[in-house]
C-alpha cells in the first residue's frame, strides 16, 4: 500500500507544481503516518435483489434507495460492501499534532485522507482478485448522488465494523473515527463504464472545497 503524496497535496489545495519545501514536508508527514498507522478494512459480498424501494442486499434488510445505486449497480448481480478506517489512533495522532503545530496537523489531515483511500484501493484489489473474469464498477459511498448518509449505520452493522475495525456510526450518521470510508462496488459479468467520479453525480456540487476553489476531486 502506498500513500499518494500528490493526492494529499491536492487535498491541501495545491494546483500544479507545489513548492519544493511544502512537497518535502508533506512527503515526510506521509512517511511518518504510514510508518505508524495501517488502514484496516473489511468487506462482504452480497447478491443483489431488485425491490420496489431500490436495490436490496440479499439476505438482509438493507435496501439501497435512489437513482445513484440503481444506475451504479445496473449491470451487476453482486456487490461488495467495504469499510476502511485509519482507526482511533489516527485521531489521537491528529489531536496530538494539533496541540503542537497546526500547520503540520493540516498536512497530516490531508495525508490521512489520502491514506484511507489507499486502504480502499487495496480492499478493492483484493475483491477484484476474488472475481476473476468479472468486472467491478467504480466505488461509491453514502453521500454520493442520492445515496443517503443515513445508510451508514445499517452498512456498518452488516460489516460488524465496531468489532472488526473499531468503527462506529454516531447518531448524526457520521463515521467515527473520522478517517473512515464505507463504499459499495458492483460486480458484473460485463465491463463497466466509469460512472461515479464526477461533479455531475455529486451532491456536494457547487459547495465542496474543491469546487469552491474551481477544482475537481477526480483523478
Amino acid at each position: 500500500m502506498k500513500l499518494a503524496v500528490d493526492e494529499a497535496l491536492r487535498y491541501l489545495g495545491v494546483k500544479g507544481r507545489p513548492d519544493e519545501a511544502l512537497a518535502q514536508t508533506v512527503a515526510q508527514v506521509a512517511q511518518t503516518l504510514t510508518g505508524q498507522i495501517t488502514p484496516r478494512y473489511t468487506y462482504r459480498v452480497f447478491r443483489l435483489e431488485r425491490a420496489p424501494a431500490g436495490v436490496r442486499l440479499a439476505g438482509t434488510d438493507v435496501v439501497l434507495p435512489g437513482a445513484t445505486a440503481e444506475k451504479m449497480l445496473s449491470g451487476c448481480d453482486q456487490a461488495a460492501l467495504l469499510a476502511c478506517t485509519l482507526g482511533a489512533r489516527f485521531d489521537q495522532l491528529l489531536r496530538s499534532t494539533q496541540a503542537r503545530d497546526m500547520a503540520q496537523a493540516v498536512i497530516l489531515d490531508a495525508c490521512g485522507s489520502a491514506w484511507v483511500e489507499s486502504g480502499c484501493d487495496q480492499a478493492e484489489d483484493e475483491i477484484a482478485a476474488r472475481f476473476p473474469g468479472q468486472y467491478l464498477t467504480d466505488r461509491f459511498s453514502p453521500g454520493y448522488g442520492d445515496l443517503p448518509l443515513t445508510l451508514q449505520s445499517a452498512l456498518c452493522a452488516l460489516l460488524d465494523t465496531p468489532r472488526r475495525l473499531g468503527l462506529v456510526v454516531t447518531e448524526s450518521a457520521l463515521l467515527d473515527p473520522v478517517k473512515s470510508v464505507t463504499a459499495l462496488v458492483g460486480v458484473s459479468p460485463t465491463p463497466q463504464p466509469a460512472r461515479v467520479r464526477g461533479c455531475a453525480v455529486c451532491p456536494l456540487r457547487g459547495s465542496c472545497t474543491f469546487s469552491k476553489g474551481g477544482q475537481r476531486c477526480e483523478r
Binding site: L12, G13, P18, M102, A103, V106
Partner: peptide, 14 residues
Amino acid sequence: AGRLYLPQLLSAAQ
C-alpha cells in the same frame, strides 16, 4: 492568490 497554501498560512500564523 493561491501562492501560499493552508499549511504555510498556518505557519505564518504560528
